[in-house]
Amino acid sequence: MTARREVPLGTVQETLLIPLYGRAVENRKPEPALRDPRAEEIVAAIDYDFARFDGLPSLMGSVLRTALFDQWVSDFLADRPEGTVVELGTGLNTRYERVGNGRARWFELDLPDVVDLRRSFFTDGARRTTIAASVTDRSWADTVASGSAAPYFFAAEAVLPFLAEEDVRRVIGGIAERFPGSLLALDTAGPGMVDAQDEHDALSKVEARMRWACAGPAGIADWHPGVEVLASHSISALPSPLFDRLPGPYREMLSGLAQQRLPQVEEYRLNLLRLP
């Protein structure tokens, strides 16, 4: 019997296991919001108490967030099939397997301990490169710039809320300066959600805590004149093309959430920006 891989991750890095498990659980459903057999394989190979997340609504939320980010990347590649995708804080994401087209240049960035874990399951290729660095360390941009060409799509999924606001400003400002005109997908958590995160169904199971409270993407546009907000959605108000493809139970659930307008749902936004 093959030994399961231990996961000696840092506090914030541990949160990557939540969306991983969400996708694995989703893949077992007869009608999933997305398919991810690799996530199931990875969960089975890791020595971790995933049962602590069983039945949590946030698992479903993480799957829907990933599905929307997948859609944005797919739309980008449909228009620019030889563009460049950069995943910031990639964790154990499998977006390359789900939506990669074999022509785009793809970079997956995360901290060294996460990259060490990733290398147990993924290998680099001619068009796929892993970078071991902090998102706040601007040196990674040199690697991306030297091995790729515009246009660029940057995906920061479940990453930036765990940074201090000044670090988020520097990260976004650095991308805008080095890769002008690029697209950036990111999630934001409002002040009420950050203040109440000790009661959050999933975050209460881990030690990591969000540090950056953002009322909405308009605030980011105020930091950097010229930023264009292309889209901003709550989990309960996903764009029609994605919503219409979801299984019936998901559509019913989301319609109910939209009517309730729960602050903890509405304050969490999924955003697509074009940087100046």
Rank of each mutant, 00 (worst) to 15 (best):
R65H: 07
S58Y: 02
N271S: 15
M210I: 08
M60L: 11
V43N: 00
N27R: 07
P180D: 09
A133C: 06
V168F: 01
D79P: 00
L262E: 14
N271F: 01
L246E: 07
Y152P: 10
L92N: 00
G89K: 00
E177W: 01
R95Y: 08
E6R: 15
T2P: 15
R65M: 08
L64Q: 00
A231S: 14
L273E: 03
G181F: 06
V7W: 13
S58M: 03
T136F: 00
Y21H: 12
S146H: 13
S58W: 01
N101Y: 05
L273A: 02
P81R: 07
E31L: 11
I131P: 04
D198T: 14
A196F: 07
R119F: 01
E177C: 01
Q260W: 07
R119N: 08
A44D: 12
G147M: 11
E26M: 02
Y152C: 09
R23T: 10
R170F: 01
G10Q: 08
V229C: 08
L88E: 02
F179V: 03
R5M: 15
V227M: 09
G100E: 09
G83E: 04
R4I: 05
S139E: 14
T129W: 07
A44R: 14
V85W: 08
R80S: 14
S148P: 11
P30M: 02
P276N: 10
G91C: 05
I46V: 13
L242W: 02
N27A: 13
D124A: 14
V159N: 06
A185Q: 02
A141T: 15
W223E: 11
V86A: 11
G89C: 00
R38G: 06
A67T: 05
L160I: 03
E40G: 15
G216C: 09
I220W: 03
L270T: 04
R35K: 14
F121A: 09
G216P: 09
G61W: 00
E108C: 03
V99E: 03
R28Y: 04
E267T: 08
W212K: 05
F107D: 09
F50T: 00
L183K: 11
L117Q: 03
D36R: 04
A202I: 04
D36G: 04
L92Y: 00
P8A: 12
L257I: 09
S204A: 15
E166M: 09
D75G: 08
V43P: 01
G173M: 10
S120F: 12
L56A: 11
G100I: 10
K205Q: 15
E207Q: 15
E97D: 15
N101V: 03
I18T: 06
P247D: 08
V135M: 04
V115Y: 00
E228R: 15
D110A: 00
